[in-house]
Amino acid sequence: MKQPIRFVALGDSFTEGVGDNDLRLPNNCRGWADRVAEELARHDPATRYSNLAIRGRRLQRIINEQIEPALAMQPTVVTFYAGGNDLLMARLNLARLMQDYEQAVRRIKASGATVVLFTGYNVPLSPLLEPLKLRTAIYNRHIRRIAAAYGTLLVDYWCFEKFQDPRMWSPDRLHMSRPGHCYMAKKVLEVLGEPHNLTSPAFPPPRSRTFTENIADDVSWLKRDVGPWLSRRVRGVSSGDRLGARWPELMPVVLPEKLGTAKARPQESSRFS
Score class of each variant (00 low, 15 high):
128 L>T: 10
130 E>M: 13
132 L>A: 06
133 K>T: 14
134 L>M: 15
134 L>N: 14
134 L>R: 13
135 R>A: 07
135 R>V: 02
135 R>C: 08
136 T>I: 11
139 Y>R: 08
139 Y>M: 07
140 N>K: 02
141 R>K: 11
142 H>P: 09
143 I>Y: 02
147 A>H: 00
148 A>Y: 02
149 A>Y: 11
150 Y>M: 05
150 Y>H: 08
150 Y>V: 12
153 L>D: 12
154 L>E: 05
154 L>S: 06
155 V>N: 00
155 V>C: 01
155 V>R: 00
156 D>Q: 03
158 W>I: 11
159 C>W: 12
159 C>R: 15
161 E>R: 10
162 K>N: 15
164 Q>T: 12
165 D>A: 01
166 P>A: 03
166 P>V: 04
169 W>S: 04
169 W>D: 00
171 P>T: 04
172 D>Q: 00
173 R>F: 03
174 L>S: 07
175 H>K: 04
176 M>C: 13
177 S>D: 05
177 S>I: 06
178 R>H: 04
178 R>E: 14
181 H>M: 07
183 Y>G: 02
184 M>E: 08
185 A>H: 00
187 K>F: 03
187 K>E: 13
188 V>T: 01
190 E>A: 06
191 V>Y: 07
192 L>A: 06
193 G>A: 01
193 G>I: 01
194 E>N: 08
197 N>S: 13
204 P>N: 03
209 R>Y: 05
210 T>D: 10
215 I>M: 10
217 D>M: 12
218 D>R: 11
219 V>E: 09
220 S>F: 13
220 S>Q: 15
221 W>D: 01
222 L>M: 13
223 K>A: 14
226 V>I: 11
228 P>D: 03
229 W>R: 05
232 R>V: 12
232 R>K: 06
233 R>C: 10
233 R>L: 11
235 R>S: 06
236 G>C: 06
238 S>F: 01
240 G>F: 00
241 D>F: 08
243 L>Q: 03
243 L>A: 02
244 G>N: 06
245 A>Q: 05
245 A>I: 05
246 R>F: 09
246 R>T: 15
247 W>K: 05
248 P>Y: 01
248 P>I: 03
249 E>D: 12
250 L>N: 03
252 P>T: 04
252 P>C: 07
252 P>W: 04
254 V>G: 13
259 L>I: 02
259 L>W: 04
260 G>W: 00
261 T>P: 07
264 A>V: 13
264 A>E: 14
